[in-house]
């Protein structure tokens, strides 16, 4: 066998083997790599290249070294899942940079992080003023996580004491004019329902680019023809306002009747209806 053919065979074989090994190591992103992944990655590439071009020894020797280097991080990963101690060594620990609103200069030095860098990382997390930060930690992968002081945290419905409608993820039921049977079945609906809804909106299936069903089983569509205005689903709002109207009517009856028993009945009904409305308001309007 001529030498060049030998190299071709070696290259292809080691490439194929390298591919299999890489699949074994798994799909961790580069940023999530541990120290061992990093070391193994460099070395494995080098060994593979060496095996391909070095004609002296048998290929098997190269493959043995490759296997060990590739499987070592896998084994360490498995161990790390089991034990916290191993995890601390393999993955490393986070370093606290700011605690109780005070910068820990020693830890900054340990991570070789300059003040400018710290400020830059904080700004990336929308903390332009250090006094707004309660706690910041450098994660093992090098990113900085920031906890703002509670008065600087973004406002949420919880802060305002609002009850909001519980939502589940919407399902995409129409894509490029085709019905997605699987996602339709996931929410317990069928073709008949979908076609009826489209009829209600007055659009044909071919014209729909995208259709989504929200947790209230209301259909929202985007059409190819952007000139056509699609009516928004109204049943929820309509029902809400019907309830409100009925409540006002009953209150009016309570005011206008002279019969004491009837007044009583109407006013208690009005109150009860008001309670019903209060309960469903977050569901139907937010």
């Amino acid at each position: 066998m001529p030498e060049w053919l030998n190299i071709v065979v070696r290259s292809i074989v080691s490439l194929a083997y390298l591919f299999i090994l890489t699949k074994l190591i798994g799909k961790r992103q580069l940023s999530q790599m541990t120290v061992f992944d990093y070391i193994a990655g460099i070395t494995v590439g080098d060994i593979a290249a060496f095996t391909a071009t070095n004609m002296d020894g048998p290929m098997l020797h190269g493959f043995i070294a490759l296997t060990i280097f590739a499987l070592f991080p896998v084994a360490m990963g498995l161990l790390a899942v089991k034990s916290k101690k191993v995890r601390d060594i393999v993955d490393g620990k986070g370093t606290v940079l700011i605690k109780h609103g005070k910068i820990l200069e020693d830890n900054l030095k340990k991570e070789r992080m300059s003040t400018d860098e710290l400020l830059e990382q904080l700004r990336l997390k929308n903390a332009f003023q250090v006094s707004n930060v309660e706690f910041a930690v450098m994660e093992p992968n090098g990113a900085v996580s920031v906890l703002l002081k509670s008065q600087n945290e973004p406002l949420t419905p919880k802060h305002m004491g609002f009850t909001v409608s519980p939502t589940t993820e919407p399902q995409t039921v129409i894509m490029d004019g085709n019905i997605m049977q699987e996602s339709l079945a996931t929410i317990g609906l069928n073709n008949g329902w979908l076609l009826a809804e489209l009829e209600k909106l007055g659009v044909s299936l071919d014209n729909v680019f995208l259709g989504q069903v929200d947790s209230n089983a209301e259909l929202y569509v985007d059409l190819y023809d952007d000139v056509i205005k699609v009516p928004e689903p109204q049943t929820l709002k309509l029902t809400y306002f019907t309830l409100k109207k009925c409540q006002a009517d009953i209150e009016l009856f309570a005011l206008s009747t002279k019969d004491q028993a009837a007044k009583m009945l109407f006013s208690t009904s009005a109150e009860r209806l008001q309670r019903v409305i209060d309960r469903v308001t977050p569901l139907m309007t937010r």
């Binding site: 049943t235 029902t239 009925c246």
Partner: peptide, 22 residues
């Protein structure tokens, strides 16, 4: 009659929604 219609709608919503709490 309006209230009856609202009641029917509420029952429809209860059947349609995928969220247990709702």
């Amino acid at each position: 009659a309006s209230l009856k219609s609202a009641h029917a709608n509420l029952e429809t919503f209860a059947l349609n929604t995928q969220n247990e709490q709702a």
